[in-house]
Structure formats: structure tokens, C-alpha cells
Design a protein around this nucleic acid. Structure first.
Length: 343
DNA sequence: TGCATTTGACCGGC
DNA sequence: GCCGGTCAAATGCA
């Protein structure tokens, strides 16, 4: 009896996942023909419906708890530790200032984790898995015992400036080098509502805002990518716009990809070009930085101390909203007419 | 020059 | 003591 239920449960998830993947494919095709905003919105709603259903299933019906129960990102280790006093042993060694790993590991323990496998097509020169819509910065690589390939560690680019503690690990499969196992840890909080720092409008961003067809621009990028998928020598600097930036711009054409983080069951469809497994992500970071117009490293190192104390406070009510990036999730009172949101 | 990546060292858990 | 995960200085790149 239980096994039958389990089978039905699994079947249901499979079906929903398949439906979601097909919707994603449809979106991909749609973007190759410059979709209208209404079409895009409709697709987002379709995807959100699938996401909701999958999420509810996976959470055993405790969607509310799951959404709000996602670990609220803890504040950075404190403003003191960012530039803070080095530990004595460090002082005795090479003067490197280190953070309190204890807090980090505690936070990691609290974070939700899920894994997905992504196959890439090495024939067309794509050696890395997908750009999942977020902006990642690589912060480490390790040789793993028993693994043929090193594991790469990524964290959200906006970790400190927006207190977003999402990380992911990417490991190339031993058996099939075209398969990457991506482990996500934590959820993104780098949405527009959690702006701890108001980003100055860069010329590019202003141009985007002045240009009333941000959507078309995004679609154009998407179209370029889909075309490039069919050719070799894909421009190394191409990638999808980041969902973070999309959110910054109040637009999330790939929000479903972003939300896959909360589903983790279907394979993303968008592949980023890459030269190696260690740098295949976030080819769009420079592109995105141009949107943001903020020197991230400086923000991280210089402003982090300033904002870190406030970020948790600012973000705390937002932490539970990290699943709300799709309209379906949004509170009815959410200001859809916010500048640039679906406009 | 600014930013992302690389890489060796460090830390906590087991 | 080993190992995975993270940090941050050094390096590379546009």
C-alpha cells in the first residue's frame, strides 16, 4: 500500500517535472522569436504552477513552512570579523585574517541542500553545465578523494552586499565527463527587495531603463544563446542575464531556473559556454556588473562592514520571501506596478 | 585599474 | 590525522 503510494508520488513528481521541462523548452523556443510580454508572463505563471506543485509535493504539503522555514541567512560573521582582529595563531603564521569558521559551518548546517545533475554537450564546445540564472563567484576548488575531477565551490556574487549566502558545488562525474553534479546549498536572497545597498544606476542600466524594451533585450540575449548552441566557438563572454540582476531590474525571465533551486529535479536547459569546468559559470558577471555599475569587490570589502550589521535586519523579513520571486508566490498586495516589474 | 579566478593555507568535523 | 569546505593573497584578464 505504501509502496503504491510511493510509486504514485514519484510518478506525480516525474510528470510534473516533465511538464516543467517542456514548459522550459517552450520558453526557450519562444525567446528565439521575441515573445511578447504577455506570453512571457503566461509562461512564468505556468512554470510557477509547476514549481508550486513540485514544491508542495516535495515538502509533503508544508509549503508554507518550507518557504518561510528556509534558513534565514545569518548575518555575516560580524562586521568585526570582516576586517576584524586576526586570531593569534594567524598572527603567528602569515598574518592572514581569517573568519570564524564555526559560524560558517553552523550556517551551512542550517542551509537546505539539494543536488541536480546536468549533462553538457561537449560536441558543441560547451564544457560546463548551465548558467542557472544566478550570479556565482568561484571561491575554491578542491581535489576530492576518490574523484577524478576536482570539485569547484561557488558562492553568490552578492553574498556580502546583499547578504545572500547561497553556495553551490560543482563536481564533474567520474563516469561521464559530460555530466556535472551540482549541489546547491542555501537559497538566494539577492532579490530586489533585499537591497541592502542602493545600487547606483550605471550608464548601461540607465540605458536599459530608458530603453523600454528590457524584455526584448533579454530575449535577444536568449536568442543569441540558443543560436550559439548550434555552433562552435561560442563567445566566451556570453551567458544568460543573471536572475539577480533580473531582479535588480525587476525582471526575471529565467525565474523558473532560479526557482529550480527550490525544486532541484529537472535539468536546466540553458548551457553556458566554458573553457574548463573551473570557470564555466557566470560568464555574464562582467555583463551584469555593468548593469549594476558597482565595483563588487570594493563593495564587498569596503561596504560589507557597513552594511553587514544592517543587512540581517533589512533582510530578515525578506529571507522568507526568497520564494516569492514569481508572481504566483507574491503576496496579493505586492506592488506589481513597481517600476520595471513586468514592464 | 578593477574585477574574477586561482591556489595554498587554514579550519572544523569526523 | 584526514578530508571537505572556506578564506584571502596572488595572479590573470579585459
Amino acid at each position: 500500500m505504501e509502496s503504491a503510494l510511493a510509486w504514485e508520488y514519484k510518478k506525480l513528481i516525474d510528470e510534473l517535472t516533465q511538464g516543467m521541462e517542456k514548459a522550459m523548452e517552450l520558453r526557450l523556443h519562444l525567446y528565439s522569436t521575441s515573445p511578447s510580454e504577455a506570453q512571457d508572463l503566461l509562461l512564468q505563471k505556468i512554470l510557477s504552477t509547476f514549481e508550486n506543485a513540485l514544491f508542495i509535493l516535495k515538502q509533503g504539503g508544508t509549503i508554507g513552512q518550507a518557504r518561510t522555514g528556509a534558513p534565514t541567512p545569518a548575518a555575516p560573521e560580524s562586521s568585526v570579523s570582516v576586517d576584524g582582529s586576526p586570531k593569534s595563531e594567524d598572527m603567528n603564521k602569515n598574518l592572514r585574517v581569517r573568519r570564524d569558521h564555526g559560524d560558517t559551518s553552523k550556517r551551512r548546517k542550517l542551509q537546505s541542500t539539494w543536488t541536480e545533475q546536468v549533462r553538457v554537450n561537449s560536441d558543441n564546445g560547451l564544457e560546463g553545465p548551465t548558467d542557472d540564472g544566478y550570479s556565482w563567484r568561484k571561491y575554491g576548488q578542491k581535489d576530492i578523494l576518490g574523484a577524478k575531477h576536482p570539485r569547484s565551490y561557488y558562492r553568490c556574487t552578492y553574498r556580502l552586499v546583499r547578504n545572500c549566502w547561497a553556495t553551490k558545488q560543482v563536481q564533474r562525474s567520474d563516469d561521464d565527463p559530460t555530466v556535472f553534479e551540482i549541489t546547491y546549498k542555501g537559497t538566494h536572497t539577492c532579490n530586489p527587495f533585499s537591497n541592502a545597498v542602493s545600487q547606483p544606476a550605471s550608464p548601461e542600466k540607465q540605458e536599459l531603463e530608458d530603453n523600454n524594451s528590457l524584455l526584448k533585450l533579454k530575449a535577444k540575449n536568449l536568442r543569441v544563446n540558443t543560436e550559439d548552441l548550434d555552433i562552435k566557438n561560442i563567445p566566451a563572454n556570453f551567458s544568460f542575464p543573471s536572475a539577480c540582476i533580473d531582479r535588480e531590474n525587476h525582471y526575471s525571465p529565467i525565474s523558473a531556473l532560479a526557482d529550480e533551486n527550490h525544486i532541484g529535479t529537472y535539468s536546466p536547459l540553458f548551457y553556458s559556454p566554458a573553457t574548463s569546468e573551473s570557470n564555466y559559470f557566470s560568464a555574464s558577471t562582467s555583463q551584469m556588473t555593468s548593469y549594476v555599475g558597482a565595483p563588487m569587490q570594493h563593495l564587498e570589502t569596503d561596504i560589507a562592514e557597513i552594511i553587514s550589521a544592517h543587512a540581517s535586519t533589512i533582510n530578515s523579513p525578506i529571507g522568507g520571501m526568497e520564494f516569492l520571486i514569481d508572481p504566483v508566490y507574491l503576496d496579493p498586495n505586492f506592488p506589481f506596478n513597481t517600476f520595471g516589474f513586468f514592464t
